[in-house]
């Protein structure tokens, strides 16, 4: 069953709205609509935009925070579009290979599945006996659009979550956390800015780059001031 058979407006012969892809020729259209990338984006799209007759989806992050939007994960898995007759069956599904495989596909090959930090963890059934997790100094989460600490922009919340779970961000967060322990208070952007502050104490000027700094040193103003000192 192709998705295009159901939603004609989303998947036309010349344009795929879900993937924002122009389809110039028939071969390109066929290749695109049968690609794995398209399939995973469609799956993500339907999670955010529930179809009639299908399993109602939830947002990755509820904007109004209302619990009423939460689907009962013991009755339905929106990712795999499966219904369950009992909590035992549901739990069996969530622990199973099929669900994990779909999660992996959804996240793409570059991001290996992490059972402890999966971005889609809200889809899992609640584990009532889990102790509340202490906020880790390696996290230091910023917004879903931009991470000031790492100077990284994100196109969507999923991308943001991948960044915040990544090694690079955790290292930067750890460094800031350690520096705070030494009594150094820096905002997220300030640490990076340290590298770019080049001050000439003789002329009392600040330069914005190492190249400008070197050019300044060779300039006549600096040479004159140096001679006078």
């Amino acid at each position: 069953m192709k998705s295009s058979d159901i939603d004609q407006d989303l998947f036309t012969d010349s344009y795929c709205k879900v993937c924002s892809a122009q389809l110039i020729s028939e071969s390109q259209r066929v290749a695109h609509y049968e690609s794995r990338k398209h399939a995973s984006k469609v799956r993500l799209y339907y999670m955010l935009h529930p179809r009639d007759g299908g399993c109602p989806a939830k947002r990755l992050r509820s904007e109004n925070g209302s619990d009423a939007d939460m689907v009962d994960k013991n009755k339905c898995c929106t990712l795999c579009n499966m219904s369950f007759t009992s909590a035992v069956v549901a739990d069996s599904h969530y622990q199973g290979k099929i669900h994990a495989k779909r999660l992996k596909l959804l996240l793409g090959e570059k991001t290996p599945l992490k059972t402890t930090a999966t971005p889609l963890s809200p889809l899992k059934p609640p584990r009532m006996d889990t102790a509340p997790v202490v906020a880790s100094p390696y996290q230091r989460r910023d917004s879903d659009r931009y991470c000031g600490l790492c100077a990284a922009w994100f196109n969507n919340p999923l991308m943001a979550q991948q960044h915040y779970d990544g090694k690079k961000h955790k290292k930067n967060a750890a460094r800031v956390a350690l520096l705070e322990q030494l009594g150094t208070t820096l905002d997220m952007g300030e640490l990076r800015g340290l590298r770019r502050n080049y001050r000439c104490t003789i002329c009392s000027v600040s330069l914005n780059s190492i190249e400008q700094y070197h050019a300044h040193l060779k300039g006549s103003k600096h040479q004159t001031n140096l001679k006078n000192k």
Binding site: R195, Y213, L226
Partner: peptide, 19 residues
């Protein structure tokens, strides 16, 4: 002293961005 110090400043090189 100041002259020697300035001469010893490590020159521009891609990636050598710290004074």
């Amino acid at each position: 002293i100041q002259k020697g110090r300035e001469l010893s400043l490590v020159g521009p090189f891609p990636g050598l961005n710290m004074k």
